[in-house]
Nucleic acid binder design. Sequence first.
DNA 1: CTCCGTGCAAATACTTTGCACCATA
DNA 2: TATGGTGCAAAGTATTTGCACGGAG
Lengths: 144, 144
Amino acid sequence: MAAIDQRTEELTQALRTAGVRITRQRKALLEVVAGAEDHPDAVELHRRAVEKMPGISLSTVYRTLTELEAQGVIQRLQFEGEAARFEHTETDHHDHMIDVETGEVVEFRSERIEALQAEIAAAMGYEIVRHRLELYVRRKPSGG
Amino acid sequence: MAAIDQRTEELTQALRTAGVRITRQRKALLEVVAGAEDHPDAVELHRRAVEKMPGISLSTVYRTLTELEAQGVIQRLQFEGEAARFEHTETDHHDHMIDVETGEVVEFRSERIEALQAEIAAAMGYEIVRHRLELYVRRKPSGG
DNA sequence: CTCCGTGCAAATACTTTGCACCATA
DNA sequence: TATGGTGCAAAGTATTTGCACGGAG
């Protein structure tokens, strides 16, 4: 978990530099976010944050998530009919595949799709600001 | 508008066959849906339905939209940070491009992207149930 | 010591639901 | 006439906000 601590420290410094005050609550949430390998929603993040900083409120979690999103530390995901989920900003952009049976979320990236999207937008006189691609999938029978 | 009336009539028959009772409220909403060339939300659909059937309630609109979605007559769209919008099910599947400045929604379709998506899912052992692709775009300066 | 952040509760926005009455098939 | 649909108001979710107090810089 040393890697997470280091990542948290880096984020802390970067945020402080950006003029964001690092409170115990924010520290706790940063640790949770840096350590999350899944795609938790606000309530789940709050649940985890409470373990590190008892008493932290859900409002503070929401407020901090908004701030972290603005600072580019995390990204907000909005899947069909679900509460918003969050993920830390990776080095690379990626899209999501959601297993409709299990709810499992798999990340993927396709340069070809990215390129095609830009091409399509350009052909219609637009440039892409951001995009959202979600594949709702089911595990293949795969012969047995 | 004869085309819309005919489309409404077709839908009415299909729904009746599927065991869905056609009330004045549902008739009104069907007409509105069949005549909508844009992507209205529930409140806007209600506004339009009231003109055809004064007194129709928002709850009924929501309930009917859920029913129409289940029957495959319409599709629910969920863009970022907006209330759900609805569109009638076209012959062809398509994706959406949303102009972030104006809010305008443009439909598009790319066989190549569709094929790539299926390919990517297959490579990971999945088959696609449905997908969602949204391009949030901005009009290009285009040398002006 | 001064703001900015926090917890709390209330407000908000969208959507769903319980219930008594009404209308379609 | 027997369901199933409707309007209304109230409840439900997910998220945001006003306010007085508290802690980070």
